[in-house]
């Protein structure tokens, strides 16, 4: 609501959301113009998967960024990034269900390790998306934070899903794995110590708020 009272903030918010929706807009645009390339289903699958993982990592980066910089306003983006990750993951799954549908669908969803990891990751994200509202946060109290720790196994499974589907070269999934590992290090006791030393005041502020 505060963004409505502050026009400049509203513009920035709208701009940021437009950026988050740009990959989707581009896919719809390219789809309408038959510009998805020689293998349209591959493009749709890869792009939606890529952006889902990217937004998952962005949502995980919010807390460390706040601790490091002391900018509390970044915190509202944790939820948005998480929901965008879920949006792209849903589209990713939808593309799979639409184009892979057939007699072997069940086998394809659960019978192969890469799809099993992907499906599991999606099922873990589902309750997080449902309980992302303030209402649910209030209702679940302390359990809300515990529940939302599921984002860590969900991200790990999503990266594993990527590792298991490539032919052999794991360069691209490895980039996501490295960033994920770095974000986990930030959260470790060692990482928290380092942040405290780097920005003693910011860390204190973050601790008080969190």
């Amino acid at each position: 609501m505060s963004s409505l009272q502050n026009p400049s903030k509203l513009y920035w918010t709208l701009l940021a959301h437009s950026l988050c929706l740009t990959p989707l807009t581009k896919l719809i645009w390219d789809s309408a113009l038959h510009r998805l390339g020689p293998h349209p289903v591959h493009t749709l699958t890869h792009q939606t998967g890529f952006w889902s993982l990217t937004f998952l990592l962005l949502s995980l980066a919010v807390s460390p960024v706040r601790s490091l910089t002391g900018f509390n306003w970044v915190f509202v983006w944790r939820r948005s990034f998480g929901l965008y990750a879920f949006l792209y993951a849903s589209l990713h799954l939808a593309v799979f269900l639409i184009f892979e549908s057939g007699p072997g669908l069940f086998q394809e969803l659960f019978g192969r390790r890469y799809t099993l990891a992907g499906t599991a990751s999606f099922l873990l994200l589902l309750p997080l998306a449902v309980t992302s509202t303030k209402e649910w946060k209030r209702r679940l109290k302390k359990r809300w934070g515990l529940l939302h720790k599921l984002v860590f196994p969900a991200t790990a499974l999503a990266i594993l899903h990527f590792v298991w589907l490539v032919k052999w070269d794991i360069q691209e999934p490895l980039k996501f794995a490295v960033i994920f590992a770095a974000l986990l290090v930030f959260r470790s006791p060692w990482g928290r110590q380092a942040i405290k030393r780097l920005r003693p005041r910011a860390a204190k502020t973050a601790k008080r708020d969190g």
Partner: peptide
Amino acid sequence: PNWSQASEYRLGFKEK
């Protein structure tokens, strides 16, 4: 080991 070889996409088509 990672995926099925039962069907394929012909480039330029959206159906397996």
